[in-house]
Design a protein around this nucleic acid. Sequence first.
RNA 1: GCGCCCGUAGCUCAGUUGGAUAGAGCAUCGCUUUUCUAAAGCGGCGGUCCCAGGUUCGAAUCCUGGCGGGCGCGCCA
Length: 618
Amino acid sequence: MWRRGRERRRRRAGGACVAKANRTGETRGDAAILLALRTSHTVTDLHAHLRSRLLDAIAGLGVERTAAESCVRLEPPKNRDHGDVALPAFQVAKLAGKAPPALAAELASRVTADDVVESATAAGPFVNFRFRRTALARAVLGAIQSGAAPYGKAAPNGQVVCIDFSSPNIAKPFHIGHMRSTTIGNALCRIHRHVGATVHGINHLGDWGMPFAKMMTAYMRWGNEQELHAQPMRYMFELYKRYGREVKENPGLDAEAAKHFQALESGADNVERRMWQLLRDESLKAFQGPYTRLGVTFDHITGESFFEDKMAGAMQRVTASGVLEQSEGASVVWLKELGIKEPCILQKSDGTTLYHTRDLAAAFYRETTFHPTRILYVVGAEQKLHFDQLKGVLTKMKEPIAAAVEHVPFGLVLSKTDDGKWEKFASRSGNAVFLDEILDEAVAKVRGVIREKNPDLLGADQVAEQVGVSAIVFNDLKNSRIKDVKFDWDSMLQFEGETGPYVQYACARLSSILRKAEAPVPAVAAIDLELLADAERVLLTMMDFGTAVQKAAEQSEPSHVTGHTIALAGEIHSYLREHYVVGQEPRIRDARLVLVDAARSLLATGLGLLGITAPDRM
RNA sequence: GCGCCCGUAGCUCAGUUGGAUAGAGCAUCGCUUUUCUAAAGCGGCGGUCCCAGGUUCGAAUCCUGGCGGGCGCGCCA
């Protein structure tokens, strides 16, 4: 990482490759849905109910029910005016041996209105359905108000998910480049917990290996403890940069570092060991700052050093499996039969271990300790080969845990050059932008906006912190993670449109209404649901929440959740424009209070899944 | 050279395992504040979905071949 002036830090970076739905997650089985439906008195899952009705109708046409199951895919119509959900009838028509439009018409007539379904209309080869507005409101608002899944946390789903994220290199500044793994991993932890998984959030700290040895070497040559304690992060960054400069003049430094690493790996209680402890402690303390601000917590902080004494066992296991070979003095595993040309090196010719070895040991450890169904590695896309190799070695060893290993790649953070092109961030002249500085800048800007728009706000500094940090985090989670993040101060500090502050603002407005209503939020059962017929767009958007979260969990893609919060905030903003709450006659006010409260609650839940808090005022 | 990824409006991006007229935000041009926060809402403008073939009743989506950009490729992580 120090060579060629390029910064390569452990487990971060990115590239541009996609892991597009390359894994299948757990989806609720139809049987489970139908069971839930039968055992409850009020219909809370409108889609499941409709699906069941449709399958009955199709069976009535003489089509094999099991065959029909996979063909009944309800989807939102392109144009909302068509209906709430639609069934493209092409596949069912093929099964029934009829022309799609004819079949659509037949299905539309067979799915008669009931408590839930208001109408079924054929439109060419599509059947458009409309739910009764009261059923829609009752199902959605009732579930949100009672905290039922998917709006609230789901019952245990049997999955155990290890999420390896953040994993910064000790002895280096926590800068913008470390943010992506941290925010994405944090969101995935929260999302998986929400859908019922047992989650182990793991910080696989880079506290071992050559990069660390280089820092140690720099510190032993030029460091002093006072300065280290005074400003650990910055001071270590200075040492890091100095090593980078001096190694160009004196290439022998690398050999010195290698020697120190061997001494450290020997396990003896020596000066290297004490140095390691000191630098590790200081770094961890320093990392806590950004972690606290970002709302990040870990269940386990087991860095590479944690696996130091598990390396020999891992190597034995590989050897015993018979896949290990010698090549140019090193111990490697060839993976050509798995389509990977590059061998995976597990032990260098000097006997020391590598990144792969430690990840292998970690996989074994996690297997026996946690029994995970999935192990997610939230690491930049540029390390795809590494994880392909890791999974490859486990596969070749016929280890069942191989199936659980999933790389969750993400794109680079890019900065704009003077001539307007985008390039890899912070690679020039060792100039890193510290994450804290970015957060501070955003918070300061927010503070200014508050001064201007809401000068009397109490606790403005705390709110500014919440809103400023959300702008940065939200921006990071807004798009598909594989996309590069264009780091641009102007757009980063923009709080209008699809941003964190926009969603928070919707929450604040809703909270404000609840405060000023001078009436408590009634129970769903106590209001006249007919009065919410004008809120159908809001309600239909709310109903999409479960799908969004489920997809986010399955595809390791927090942006599905981010997108839903934007959509819901937009709908509620529009609704509020024309529908007042305060000052309305009690029956209308009460009905709208339930809606407003549910919207606020669901927005806060969505933001919470992203690690973002929602202030009541801003 | 080989492998992987990306390419949709001026910019940044959505587009659900192939489905109806390809959607948002920013920018730009208008409009909206005598009631709950204008960090908002409503409307206008803006498209060769990189190109060419193929599969299909139907392709931005799947396949093949190009073009452009990014990332990676034995003892770093």
